[in-house]
């Protein structure tokens, strides 16, 4: 009898330890980044461009570039994603085509980010002749986050009670009007919070923009969507691995990492908090 409970205690110990280790890893990484990075952060760091061949100055162009790329990715991913999910949950009847679409989405979700980069290079940059540009990078990132947004939107649409749809249709309101006036407004908060997690991913990805949009250094801010941009993740990679001044730029690297982590995890955290709040508030 004792033996049974001893085994149980050991097992519970292991299980709790795993959860603890994971928490400590996250906490440790964040703590380490903050303690090393915060001293670099200043208004100038965020609002000034780099100087002295990137060993001094700020990271403003990289912040701007990441904003452009992320907004571009949202502009592509969100409409395509929501519309796909509307088809799948509201219109599609089970069948071969729907199966193919679903398999396609699953496969797309599994494509490695560097392969997305190759695709962006081969298709947008070279074949469509966009060059390495905000446009090519945004399209690549937009399709990268498409499966995430479809998934989040499908879940949110499915959580709208079927009775709402029935009530609307029974009044003689057409299907599209029902979707537009009843289903979408009720699903939108869920769609957006779910999509935010994908958006955080778009802001933090490096491999997909390496060959499609990111520049080591640009003297000027981009003036059109056909310009290259600097971007936070690429900036970190470049400063940390290339050049002769790796040690000299360490503080800037930490500062940039802190800004990127702050932005991405900040976005995620907001989504998580809103979602928790909505779940508690939900009336149906």
């Amino acid at each position: 009898m004792r033996w049974r409970y001893l085994k149980q205690s050991v097992f519970f110990g292991l299980v709790s330890a795993s959860a603890l280790i994971i928490t400590l890893v996250l906490g440790g990484i964040i703590f380490y980044i903050i303690t090393n990075g915060y001293s670099v952060i200043s208004l100038d760091f965020i609002t000034k461009p780099p100087t002295d061949s990137m060993t001094k100055g700020g990271i403003m162009p990289a912040i701007i570039g990441t904003i452009y790329l992320t907004v571009g990715a949202i502009a592509i991913g969100l409409p395509f994603g929501i519309a796909s999910a509307i088809y799948l949950t509201e219109y599609a009847r089970q069948g071969k085509i729907v199966r193919i679409i679903k398999i396609g989405i699953n496969c797309l979700a599994g494509v490695p980010s560097v392969v997305f980069g190759l695709f962006g290079l081969g298709f947008f940059v070279i074949f469509l002749k966009f060059g390495s540009s905000i446009l090519a990078g945004s399209l690549t990132l937009g399709f990268l986050i498409l499966p995430t947004i479809i998934g989040a939107s499908e879940e949110a649409l499915k959580s709208v009670p079927q009775t709402f749809r029935e009530a609307s249709l029974s009044l003689g309101v057409s299907k599209w009007q029902t979707i537009y006036r009843i289903v979408l407004p009720n699903a939108l908060p869920g769609i957006l919070t779910g999509s935010i997690l994908g958006i955080g991913r778009a802001a933090g990805e490096t491999a997909p923009i390496m060959f499609t949009a990111a520049a080591f250094f640009t003297a000027k801010l981009p003036s059109s969507i056909f310009d290259e941009v600097m971007a936070l993740p690429y900036h970190i990679y470049v400063l940390a691995t290339a050049g002769t001044n790796i040690e000299a730029t360490r503080p800037i690297q930490f500062g940039t990492v802190l800004v990127l982590v702050g932005v991405v995890l900040g976005i995620d955290l907001i989504a998580i908090i809103i979602r928790g709040y909505m779940r508690r508030k939900k009336r149906w």
Partner: peptide
Amino acid sequence: KESLKSVIELLAGLPSVVLGFFGMVI
């Protein structure tokens, strides 16, 4: 439970370049 799920979600959200950086410098 809820906080741990958030921890795991945040861990998933860490950009890979940041983890790579962490591996390099630590």
